[in-house]
């Protein structure tokens, strides 16, 4: 850019030089013969080359003025506008690229978190299943224990009831035997000794049974 500015030179110099060329060209064109170029021009004209050196020099002057004026009036603003627009587009593209990168990062983050959530949920479900299985095992063991205890209790109660019934039965049998013996012998058999004899007999019968 600095090189470009160096090469363009000062616009004022160009404009002044251009004005000098224009005035010089006008003077040359109007006084061609007096300045000694009229003959050359006429010779060229005769050969079919219509040249007026005054016009040529004037044209050079016009362009020396036009270059800096048009450049500063229009071309520089146009260049700046195009440059600005390109910068805008570049910035927009960069922003879009950054947003895309950010979106991809968020997406991968989301995927990672989703995978983590799934793994966590799976872990929790497995844990719950394990816990439920443990609970089931412990409950079954407890139920079995309680059932055994109940069975033992019931057995003991049955045994106790049985013993009680046996004792009652034995007492009843003894009473019946004594009553029957009283009837047979016609005498009171309810003495201590008789009762013991009957009990001993029943016990011996039970042992045999």
């Amino acid at each position: 850019m600095s090189n470009e500015q160096k090469s363009s030179g000062s616009p004022i110099v160009g404009i002044i030089l251009g004005a000098v060329f224009m005035v010089g060209g006008t003077y040359l064109s109007l006084n061609a013969k007096a300045l000694g170029v009229g003959g050359i021009q006429e010779t060229l004209e005769g050969q079919g080359i219509p040249l007026d050196f005054g016009k040529t020099i004037g044209t050079i002057g016009v362009f020396l003025i036009l270059f800096p004026v048009i450049k500063s009036f229009f071309i520089k603003p146009l260049q700046d506008a195009i440059q600005e627009r390109n910068s805008d587009l570049e910035r927009t593209f960069t922003e879009a690229e950054n947003l895309r990168t950010e979106m991809e990062r968020m997406r991968s983050d989301y995927d990672r978190r989703l995978a983590e959530s799934e793994a966590s949920a799976r872990e929790q479900i497995q844990s719950q299943i394990r816990e439920a299985q443990n609970l089931r095992s412990s409950l079954m063991a407890e139920a079995a224990t309680r059932a055994d205890a109940l069975v033992q209790q019931a057995t003991a109660e049955i045994e106790a009831e049985k013993q009680k019934v046996l004792v009652e039965l034995r007492t009843h049998v003894v009473d019946l035997a004594l009553a029957a013996a009283e009837k047979v012998v016609g005498e009171n058999m309810d003495s201590e000794r008789n009762r013991r004899l009957v009990d001993d007999y029943i016990n011996s019968v039970e042992v045999v049974a």
Binding site: I49, P50, L51, D52, K55, T56, T59, F63
Partner: peptide
Amino acid sequence: APTADLSFNLGMALI
């Protein structure tokens, strides 16, 4: 037109 004049064109060419 200006470009129909050889002198004008020569001026541009010289520049």
